[in-house]
Amino acid sequence: MIDIEKEIQKDRRAFIKNVLSGTIAGSLLMVIPAGAALDGAIPEQIPGVRGDHSPFLKNQFVFIVDVTACIGCGSCCVADKNEYNVPDGNYRTWVERYVIDDHDEVFVDCPNGGLDGYTKPRTDIPYPVRDTFFVPKLCNMCQKPSCVQVCPVGATYRTEDGFILVDKKRCVGCGYCIQACPYSARYLNPVTKTADKCTWCYHRVREGLLPTCVNVCPVHARKFGDLNDKNSEVYKLLREPHVISVLKPGMGNQPALHYLGLRREVV
């Protein structure tokens, strides 16, 4: 009898413990996001980066674009223009439309860089259309960048964590880098009169945020992550069997921008 009494006592204790810890944990869960909301900071999207003030991060960032998922909505282009106030007619990122007819001829267009989306089909194609798809383009962040090599004043450079950036104070706007880039990712900014291009949102990444185009993509066609993190999606995509390719591999630039399901027609 005494044993049973003891058991009941134990059970009660365990029950009270469980209820108490449950309540505390539950209330904490409700409090923590509310607390984060108060200081107005955006929740961290890349773990362990915010607050790191060393000049270079230890991460090895890669960007993957899934061509098979892209719906050509142009969210990325809109977000990019919003983030940087890119002057009209210049594009840091853009979405190309490829149309292949049944004679295997390829037609590429990109009205306003995909900023207004694709609302009209192409009417100038003589034969029935076999296939169409969208290809988002941005800076390839080459491991051997030709733009850095040609800069006469050291205004464009590759950081140790793999970003190629343009120093706006140093750039003289000669345009060598614009010609050297095999991917046409650069343009001459008409406002600052310096070379400009996609930075993979360096300022956001350093704050632990995803690049803005990755953040807004509704179909998750743009993926950004750290190759050193073995649990990240990009690590799994790049290290496990997938059809992954880069643009113009023959140029030898070794881009860190990879494409998933890229077609041979794409240049």
Partner: peptide, 14 residues
């Protein structure tokens, strides 16, 4: 310039 690049304003949030 690394510092300058980091100080670009984050205009788009989540």
């Amino acid at each position: 310039d690394l510092e300058d690049q980091r100080n670009v304003e984050v205009r788009s949030h989540t």
